[in-house]
Structure formats: C-alpha cells, structure tokens
Amino acid sequence: MNQARSTPFNKAAMHGALILYTLIALFPVFVILINSFKTRRAIFREPLSLPDADSFSLIGYQTVLKQGDFFLYLQNSMIVTVASLFFVLLFGAMAAFALSEYRFRGNMWMGLYLALGIMIPIRIGTVAILDMMVATGLVNTLWALILVYTAQGLPLAVFILSEFMRQVSDDLKNAGRIDGLSEYTIFFRLVLPLVRPAMATVAVFNMIPIWNDLWFPLILAPGEETKTLTLGSQVFIGQFVTDWNAVLSALSMAILPVLLLYVIFSRQLIRGITSGAVK
C-alpha cells in the first residue's frame, strides 16, 4: 500500500537520523551513569570507557550514603507525590463529575473558572503563597507542598476527567438511580471505575512535574526534615562540587527513581499523550 512512500534508501536515512538523535538524547545520561562507578583517576583518564575491574569503584556512592540523607529525601518525595496525586484525582474527579453530570446555574462559569489555572502558572503567586504558609504554620512541612501541587494539578485534571465523564452512559447512571443508589454511590461505584484509564493519564501527567519541581521545595520546605529528592540532590551536589565521585553518584541516584517510574509508566504516559487527552 505504501510502497511509493518508502524506498530502501529513505528507510536507511530515517533510521540514521533517529539513531543519531537517540544517541544525543541518551549520551549525557549514559556518561553520568558509567562514570559514577569509576575511580577518580579513571573518570578523568578515560571518561568514555566502561568501568572495568581496574577502574571500578563505589567510593562515590559510599560518600553520598554517608553524607546525605538520601533515603529520607526519597521518602519525602514519595509522600509528596503520592499524596498530591491522590488529592488531585479525588477532588478533580468529584468536581469533574459535578460539572459533567448536573445542570445547574453557573455550571459553565465554574468550568471556566477552574480551567483558568491550566494556562496560568501557580508560581506567579509564590510571594502570597509563602505568606500564607508562614501565617498558617505550614512552612517546612510536607503539607505545604501537597497543597500547592494539588491546586496546581486540579485545573487540567478537572478538564480531562470531565471530557471523559461525559462519555459514561446515562442509562447506567439512571438505572442506578432507579435502584435507589445515592448520587455519591453512583459516583464512587459506577462512574469512577469506568474512568480509571483517564485517571491514570492524569496521574502520569502530574507525577513527573511534581517529582522534579525545585521551586516550591526550595521556597516552602527547605528544612532538612522536609527536603525532597530534587532539592536534596541540588544542595548536596552544590556542596560537593569538587568531589567528582560523589557528584556523579548523587546524580545517578537521582536519575534512577525517575527512570524506574518511567519504565513502569511509559506506556500509560505515551498512550495518554497520543490519545489526545491534551488537545
């Protein structure tokens, strides 16, 4: 069918271009990872060779584990990310259900109001957010971050989820109503399970920006007890600029959790983007 569009030469050129770009994309990550396992001398002598029996060393990782509270930071990042995603999904789905299911006065305005935040970054309001967190004593707690990320994620979540909830069949919901189910039961028992794929999409979209954010942890929760992994590695690396083993190992340890998340969720992420959820 598509014979006219693909000659062997074209195919080769296309693969060539894609392989070249894939190398550009992966090269820095690769260099960091392999050098984190080498001795200091090997890092400088042969930066591009794989670690071998001679040059293999874990000294950098030892420094990182001794000096930084890596596991505490990792735990903080996980708590913040999981809790924010939970609230974004729960509150977002509830609001999306109200907007897509019921006709009431102000429905359209409410939808527009909630959609405003899709385009306007929450960072603009940082000065007042910090004021508010200081006033309520939430500064340097993980709650400050969870609240901010929940607010940041809600607009897009409501927008995407209400699109999907409009497609849930009315007959099903009405059948539930005739059987005497309350509106809450209809939402939790009938509608939520049906929009689970859309919820997964929203979760994956929100997960990476929350995990990687540096701005709000730096401003709202810079204390030792509440540092996230992103902020923790920034501070740690800043202190150890001259200890290349430690810096490379810290970078690798920061890369690994995200890479792991990506491997687990990449199908969901790519399906989410390509299914046109953000069109």
Partner: peptide
C-alpha cells in the same frame, strides 16, 4: 450533593492558587 462534589476542588484551588495570585498582585 453538587456542592459536596465541587467544594474540595474549588476550595483548594481558590485558596492556594487564585487567592494568592491576586494577593501577590495586591502586594
């Protein structure tokens, strides 16, 4: 129930995003 469904999202969004945004402009 409509209010119950809308309230959490609207409250968090208004309190942590919209209000600080305008408060920043006021400051």
């Amino acid at each position: 129930h409509i209010a119950v469904f809308l309230a959490p999202a609207v409250i968090v969004y208004t309190a942590v995003m919209i209000f600080p945004l305008f408060n920043t402009l006021r400051l």
